[in-house]
């Protein structure tokens, strides 16, 4: 297959998925009576509200333990979604990479799963999963998990393809088995990039978790939603502030880890 047809087919794939997303989103909006347009339209307003109410009062500070608990729950859920997603993505990327792929069918399967889960936004996944799992933490976790699998599979395939094919060839020539080659030639070479992608995924998931949480009624997103709906803007400010702080801390931490590894 040449590059042109590949690009064209990828374009069609993307168009297909966009239509699918729109369809599913409309369908789920219709079924659950959830008006997404209205939801989005209120966000700038909420922003304005938060700006004008960005005062963390004594009273709202009393809610800090609850907020921190929810925040921790959200962070842990994001990490869990990332680590489990990593495990699945690792095997999918082995199938999907040219260097380590064994059968064409598996490769196609892996790349299909990757693009299907990646090209559908996490929020859409949350909406889709809401239908089958209802409003609970499993839904939130699954939405993040599916998104992580898609993104990480794609990123890992690239890392593995980039890692030199040459050591793989050498180990194959010594009579090494498939998994000896994977763990002793491929993984050591891809490790820094892979860890970097995993850290990036954790950051992204923590950010996404808030949004997903609002939709699925779990974690810090739910807390945010609750205070917002009960007009407790001081508490909303505190929630927002703690999310921002958490994201910054996680980002600093992962930057540090990246520096140490590479």
């Amino acid at each position: 297959m040449n590059e042109k047809t590949m690009k064209a087919s990828r374009k069609w794939q993307t168009i297909f998925f966009i239509l699918l997303i729109i369809g599913m989103t409309l369908a789920s909006s219709a079924i659950t009576g959830f008006n997404i347009i209205h939801g989005i339209a209120t966000l700038p307003k909420a922003g304005a509200w938060i700006l004008s109410n960005l005062m963390i009062t004594q009273e709202s500070l009393e809610r800090l333990p609850t907020i921190l608990e929810k925040l921790l729950e959200t962070i842990l859920m994001s990490i869990a979604a990332t680590t489990t997603g990593t495990a699945v993505a690792f095997f999918l990327s082995l199938m999907g990479s040219k260097t380590t792929g064994t059968k064409k069918v598996f490769g196609v399967f892996a790349r299909f799963v990757a693009s299907a889960s990646r090209n559908i936004p996490v929020v859409a996944w949350a909406l889709i999963l809401l239908l089958s799992f209802g409003q609970n933490s499993v839904t939130g976790y699954l939405a993040l998990f599916v998104g992580s699998v898609g993104f990480l599979t794609r990123a890992f395939i690239e890392s593995i393809d980039e890692a030199s094919q040459s050591a793989v060839e050498a180990l194959r020539a010594t009579g090494a088995t498939y998994f000896q080659i994977v763990f002793k030639a491929v993984v050591p070479q891809c490790m820094p990039q892979m860890i970097s992608w995993i850290l990036f995924m954790i950051e992204t998931n923590i950010r996404n978790a808030t949004l997903v949480g609002i939709l699925t009624g779990t974690g810090i997103g739910y807390t945010f939603d609750l205070y917002y709906k009960t007009l407790n803007y001081n508490a909303v400010a505190l929630v927002t502030f703690s999310i921002i702080l958490a994201v910054i801390v996680i980002e600093l931490m992962s930057n540090y880890i990246r520096k140490v590894i590479i």
Binding site: T177, Q180, F183, Q189
Partner: peptide, 25 residues
């Protein structure tokens, strides 16, 4: 065709994989 990030001794021992089970390797 060495694994560049691994040590010399590790790379040399890679030559023994053919004699080992997957797990040992």
């Amino acid at each position: 065709n060495l694994v560049p990030r691994l040590s010399v001794i590790e790379n040399v021992l890679h030559g023994r994989f053919g004699y080992k089970t997957t797990i040992q390797g």
